[in-house]
Simulated scan of single mutants.
Amino acid sequence: MSPKETYFRAGKIHYEVIERSKKLITPGASLLVIAQAIEKDIASYPEASLAFPVNLQLNNEVHYSPLPGDTRTISKEDIIKVDIGVHVEGYIADGAYTIALNKDYQDMVDFTEKVLRETLTGLKPGMKVSEIGRRLDVHMKDSPYKIIKNLMGHQVQRWDLHSKKSVFVYESDSPHTLEPGEAFAIEIFITDGAGFIKSSAHAVIYALKKSLIPMRDMRLRQLCKTIYEKRRHLPFTERYVVEHLKYSKIDFANLKRSGNIMEYPILVEVPGSKIAQFEDIIYVDEDRVSITTKV
């Protein structure tokens, strides 16, 4: 398949997985069981793999993925953001949705979905990337909610989840344009909080550094080699190392101590706030801009 065809194949698989995953989101459901079910669903497609850990983000959290033995569950007071990534031969489909189990937040969820849908409508090749931010500014002008301005969309390339061009969620002076052959993850996070996200002291998502420190331990060298062969520099979790690669928690702890992996901290808004997230991949063709993650 061509790169374009592969992006769209990944997008179709992603759409099907996303739609089935929505049935898993119920009060009392285990985050770990949900993540494992989504991973199993992706693995049922011979050509597809997980592009990054399944993010199951409650309330004011971003970038949380279940740990081995995780006991967290969804309550009827929560809203949950489900962010799933699929790749086919390194070509990535990345998308997210939000479900409000607490219906007091349904308006914010519906608003976020509507804003993304309308922002992506009518994009054209050659447009400035900053047009996306300008449209978002218009939507947010009279809104009771705030868009989180220090989280943004990003270009994706083969094996590269966060590539060269950033997509700011407000109007900027970015010189970049939407060029044929490019793909972008357009994501927005809208909140009733401060509109600014901060890093917590904890991380559960990691990636191999592009330049590795030499290691004497043969087992650690093999672990790094296996991760690279399967994921290049795409993110992973401790649970991936333990459940999928069949290494031990001690092996993972030693890998962390080796200095060869980057950490992506859990991000948090102000306590008591809620965040809604929606995201899709757009592909820029010669004559149109299409959403790969919608059918």
Results as ranks from 00 to 15, higher is better:
117 R>H: 04
133 G>W: 03
235 P>K: 04
144 P>N: 08
34 I>Y: 07
149 K>G: 11
56 L>V: 11
227 I>Y: 01
4 K>E: 15
98 T>G: 05
70 D>A: 06
284 V>G: 05
73 T>E: 12
83 D>C: 09
292 T>C: 06
129 V>Q: 04
106 Q>N: 14
33 V>T: 15
43 A>V: 11
31 L>C: 05
238 E>W: 02
45 Y>V: 08
134 R>L: 11
214 P>F: 00
201 A>R: 14
179 E>V: 15
199 S>R: 03
132 I>L: 02
107 D>C: 00
270 V>R: 12
222 Q>R: 13
131 E>G: 00
150 N>K: 09
199 S>D: 11
29 A>I: 03
9 R>M: 09
14 H>Y: 12
98 T>D: 10
229 E>T: 08
99 I>T: 14
253 A>D: 15
292 T>N: 01
4 K>T: 15
218 M>W: 06
97 Y>T: 02
236 F>E: 04
153 G>R: 07
65 S>E: 04
162 H>D: 13
199 S>H: 05
242 V>S: 07
120 L>P: 01
152 M>L: 13
60 N>M: 05
171 E>F: 06
99 I>K: 14
112 T>I: 12
263 E>A: 15
110 D>G: 08
68 P>L: 06
80 I>R: 07
141 K>G: 01
272 G>K: 12
100 A>V: 14
19 E>N: 11
219 R>S: 05
165 K>P: 00
223 L>P: 02
133 G>S: 07
155 Q>K: 12
30 S>C: 10
